[in-house]
Nucleic acid binder design. Structure first.
Lengths: 136, 136
DNA sequence: ATTACTGCAAAACCTTTGCAGTGGT
DNA sequence: ACCACTGCAAAGGTTTTGCAGTAAT
């Protein structure tokens, strides 16, 4: 998504175009690392020169309400933000911290109707297990 | 699990028997509500008369290390604790907050080896949807 | 008697909120 | 010129840590 498309997106939702908002969206869209608010803050600060956590959280909340971003609790102390709002799970490497998207199919009996499903798999990614195999 | 079995469990792991520890384990085992640290604190306070968050968290960490308790992040601000450490997922009712255990089978392609899997389904439980259907 | 455990108080951490000032429209 | 947005500073909620006193062995 280009900057002009980001600008369009913001305009279409009646939002003002600010450098912080544009850079937050650009970051989420170009680096699919599933960043934390902290990582977004650091990136935008380095690019735009001025940003606050207030603005980061404000923007993320706005984007969540717009349905443009999903917030995922990978731990009880932190959320990550995913610009891919389609149905998918996450693989978290407990060695390097990388987060991979995963596709899955689940079979289950539920005591009610579903709103959303979150699957998080913790493990060691191939890169890390290769590395460990050759170096430990 | 009886109190004497709880005492055995603690002894077998070289831990001292304190009223707080016994009551935390009793609570986790008798009420399978998947409590938060806050709920455990309140319960133990009402039963034992004296407890602190320090002790609640100390005990939960010890039990986690012993593999007797699983910590689950149902939101980014809070953890719940589950004495059932077997492989299962959770259904969280977004109306009443109840947490149900669910069994599931999942098919997926993974970019590494699995350590543990966490499935959380958010939705409305039958009780709440029945209630809503008749009263709204 | 020893030392593990409890619990207070303070800190750490992430996120939210109040409010004044700035900047996009 | 308007008012949405930014950002500081302070507060909120959950969890952790330091340390002194207490209680289980």
């Amino acid at each position: 998504m280009s900057v002009s498309q980001i600008v369009e997106l913001l305009k279409n939702h009646g939002l003002k175009i600010t450098p912080q908002r544009v850079e937050i969206l650009r970051f989420l869209q170009s680096n699919r690392i599933h960043p934390t608010a902290q990582q977004i803050y650091e990136h935008v600060l380095s690019k735009v020169g001025s940003v606050s956590f207030t603005t980061v959280y404000n923007t993320l909340h706005t984007l969540e309400e717009m349905g443009q971003v999903k917030k995922i609790a990978i731990s009880e102390s932190m959320a990550i933000y995913d610009i891919d709002t389609s149905d998918h799970g996450h693989f978290v490497c407990t060695v390097c911290g990388s987060i991979y998207d995963i596709n899955y199919k689940v079979k289950m009996n539920l005591p009610g109707t579903v709103q959303r499903t979150e699957l998080i798999v913790y493990g060691v990614c191939s890169q890390c297990s290769d590395y460990l195999q050759h170096n430990v």
